[in-house]
Write a protein that binds this DNA or RNA. Structure first.
Lengths: 202, 202
DNA sequence: CTGATTCTTGAGTAATTACTCAAGAATCCA
DNA sequence: TGGATTCTTGAGTAATTACTCAAGAATCAG
């Protein structure tokens, strides 16, 4: 009996993501969101409660999309270490092509808001932890496979990998050169190689 | 014959730094700056031209302070590689202690504004390049000393190191654990070790 | 069609924004 | 002290902010 909403929630979230991602949370006005989504202020507040409520839902969407992409990059790899190498090469490529880009919505938001808003800090913490755990799982299975030596520490190594992913999220806001990105990928692989099983050393 | 200013420029910059660093550029109002510096709006605009003009001067100050600190950390080290190791251990320690902190003003600003403001992007580019070059110099001298093998690439390695410094600037906004930071330092040192001269390998 | 329910509309609110400017205060050389 | 110069003051401006709410539109079961 009720009148159905005149918009698709996912579609609105997608359009809102574009604006938040391009301008940042603080610099995005509700007016911008009205323009981007086509919803009037009243509808936005009826559907999402507040600017922050909408943003939290945008972040959830973003985490899910990002993890799906990582899983896809991992899916076709011939080994666990190859999967990780692929992820880093892809990220480096994307970083090189995306000079002066919007970067990563999660990292941008972490630096802008985590310190001041606990809800957002928790949301981002969960998102990044899910990614880190994906890496840790791969490293653990690499150790189980004998790709990594028994002394390798998947948790510590995954933190190192996350650190380099995050570094590239910063770098893409600057002026990354091919030399720099090659150096980063090379450094990451060198650190992993140091934990490889002796019988696999070249 | 003129009336002298009633404030010390450096003192005002220091107080302004605190506010910008804590809140971010966009979230800092001129009213906040009036409160923090004790100057009235008119005096601020007479002395610095605009909010952005003041901020650019704040950034210059920040870069100089930061580089001075790095030089100091380098100064007492027994070797070039030891200097770099010290820098990373110090940064990791500071990151662990500064959970949920203000992070790094330069990185925060890079993510918030570099994409939208060329003046600020240039300022940050210069600041980070000066730091990277410090690292590159150390790596080059390490190669010259024989600490690193002849095939080592100081420019590429310095980019890798910068990437990890930047990663920690992101991490300190999240919830860094000792395990994570140990993993990062360990990974960085492992990558450097892979470039060491054969005769130095343990 | 009727009526119950929910959605949409957009003008409006009170607060905050970066910034200005004319008037007055303070300084120093003569 | 007189007067030229610069600094300080703070009320004020026009624009923008996140958000609200009452009225009207759209839907569907009966």
């Amino acid at each position: 009996m009720p009148r159905p909403p005149g918009f698709q929630r996912d579609d609105v979230l997608l359009r809102a993501t574009e604006v938040f991602w391009s301008r940042g949370y603080g610099a995005t006005s509700v007016c911008d969101l009205v323009e981007a989504t086509g919803l009037k202020p009243g509808s936005i507040y009826a559907a999402f409660g507040s600017k922050k409520g909408l943003f939290l839902e945008v972040l959830d969407h973003y985490h899910n999309d990002h993890l799906r992409a990582v899983d896809q990059a991992f899916a076709g790899a011939p080994s666990s270490l190859a999967a990780i190498e692929t992820l880093f090469r892809q990220t480096a490529d994307a970083t090189l092509k995306a000079t002066g880009s919007r970067g990563c919505l999660a990292v941008n938001t972490l630096l802008e808001l985590a310190q001041h808003d606990d809800d957002i800090a928790r949301n981002l913490q969960n998102g990044s932890e899910r990614l880190r755990r994906r890496l840790e799982e791969r490293l653990a299975s690499a150790r189980a496979n004998g790709e990594l030596c028994a002394a390798a520490n998947p948790e510590a190594l995954s933190a190192f990998l996350m650190n380099n992913l995050w570094g590239m999220r910063v770098l893409c806001k600057s002026n990354p050169t091919a030399t720099a990105l090659d150096g980063i990928v090379h450094g990451v692989l060198a650190a992993i190689t140091a934990s490889r099983s002796a019988r696999l050393h070249s």
